[in-house]
């Protein structure tokens, strides 16, 4: 690189001043883009929102065959205490015949086959399916039934009939004790 200063354009291919121009413009450009990040990131979940991102639930009072709905991250979560018959029903079906192929064993925690925890929003257009309250229509497969567009879920929360493309999602959760689970 030449160290001479040229003030007339088109004299030398590249000189010290060109380099300074390009370097300065690049710094300003990159700096400008970086400065935008706080204005974008402020939209992401805030610290207090994240602090509420897990919830502990006492499940001792849920009798077999019953279910409860709790709110986690603003979304309904179904916690269902399954009967032996319901587990057998969910295990009896051939996985290959399902719309969203997943075995029942993959949807519950090992050793806790009687507990099913799923996010209670229909995978079609986000409605909340019926079936958690006693007396609700549980659909043709004994799990949940979405009244919006008629999706039927089985006792494993898997889509069996209707327009929904996916099974009810299983959130991340763990057993803190025998009667307490932590979701999130």
């Amino acid at each position: 690189m030449s160290t001479k200063e040229h003030t007339i354009e088109g004299e030398e291919p590249a000189n010290r001043r060109d380099f300074l121009h390009v370097a300065a413009a690049s710094m300003a450009g990159v700096g400008g883009i970086l400065a935008m990040w706080p204005f974008v990131d402020q939209m992401n979940p805030a610290a207090d929102t994240l602090a509420l991102s897990s919830v502990e639930v006492d499940i001792s009072s849920i009798a077999a065959g019953e279910a409860i709905v709790i709110k986690w991250q603003g979304k309904p979560v179904f916690i269902r205490h399954r009967t032996a018959t319901e587990i057998d029903e969910a295990r009896a079906v051939a996985v290959d015949s399902l719309i969203d192929k997943q075995s029942d064993g993959d949807r519950v925690l090992p050793g806790h086959d009687d507990w099913l925890v799923v996010i209670g929003t229909c995978t079609h257009l986000g409605c909340v399916p019926l079936g958690s309250k006693s007396g609700d229509d549980r659909g043709e497969y004994g799990g949940w039934f979405c009244p919006c567009h008629g999706s039927h879920y089985d006792t494993s929360g898997r889509i069996r009939k209707g327009p929904a493309p996916k099974n009810l999602a299983v959130p991340k959760y763990a057993f803190v004790s025998d009667t307490m689970i932590k979701i999130g």
């Binding site: 974008v40 939209m43 992401n44 979940p45 805030a46 929102t49 991102s53 991250q73 603003g74 979304k75």
Partner: peptide, 17 residues
């Protein structure tokens, strides 16, 4: 979607923005 919501569902942060 989380960026749009400012949380894990449509909620207070969403309404304010």
């Amino acid at each position: 979607v989380q960026l749009l919501w400012g949380g894990f569902s449509v909620d207070n942060p969403t309404l304010k923005r």
